[in-house]
Nucleic acid binder design. Structure first.
Lengths: 123, 123
DNA sequence: TACTAATTCAACCGAGCGGTTGACTTTTAG
DNA sequence: CTAAAAGTCAACCGCTCGGTTGAATTAGTA
């Protein structure tokens, strides 16, 4: 658990970028240096370095200097926080039917709304 | 599953904002109108409306017009995509020890790196 | 010692974001 | 019919983001 809300902001933010998710995916296979991580991309090294810094700040990556290079390794806890938040939210939603009635009423309201207009969805 | 990568971008992006996560939390209890959702915040209605639009675009919320108001309801699929991605990535990472050796070597490299310098973490 | 490799830093750029305001549309109420 | 309610839209503001370039730092190497 632990999930301070401030962290969730930066973790979700960090994961909102495809390059950064790709870096995470690469690191899921094991540690890599910044240079190794940068190779697959056409970005500059500095660019990738900045991405890694974002991941570090979000606690998703640990960077430890090793000679003139820096080894990066995945830190899985924030991933668990994200998965937890999402699935807790989803299962809370799923249990919103304290009574079966709830869902029936929701459905009815929905239909009542979209029927006269002729369709679902908002302008 | 289904998770088109493009979607993950917008979903993670949508969830990176605390106001938007709060809206999701509110909607997890059941449908609400835009006005109802806006009440708890000190933002303008237009501001909240924009947030909801972001959630809609990410597929997290369905808006259906009902008279002069708009009913918003949570759509749980993207939450599952997020939870799936995070936990799949994490468990792939957890299985990176094809051999026990792997982890031992990783640890050794880490220690070798941080020992002479005197600590872990990068400048 | 001087040179090169690996990485970060600082400054900069254009684009997008979060938020406000004010006009506008549509629906309900008097 | 007129007026108010509920939302959205468009324009705008300041700030952060993703990315580049070029200089600076740090560590191996000849």
């Amino acid at each position: 658990m632990v999930e301070s809300h401030t962290d969730l902001n930066t973790v979700f933010g960090a994961l909102a970028d495809p390059t950064r998710r790709a870096l995470i995916a690469a690191l899921a296979e094991g540690p890599h240096t910044v240079g190794e991580l940068a190779e697959p991309f056409e970005f500059t090294l500095a660019g990738v370095s900045k991405h890694i810094k974002v991941l570090s700040r979000a606690g998703l990556v640990k960077q430890v200097r090793n000679g003139r290079r820096v080894d990066c390794s995945l830190q899985p806890e924030p991933l668990r926080s994200v998965a937890d938040w999402a699935s807790r939210t989803e299962s809370f939603w799923a249990s919103r039917l304290e009574s079966l009635e709830t869902v029936v009423v929701e459905r009815r309201r929905e239909r009542a709304a979209s029927d006269p207009a002729g369709e679902g969805g908002v302008s």
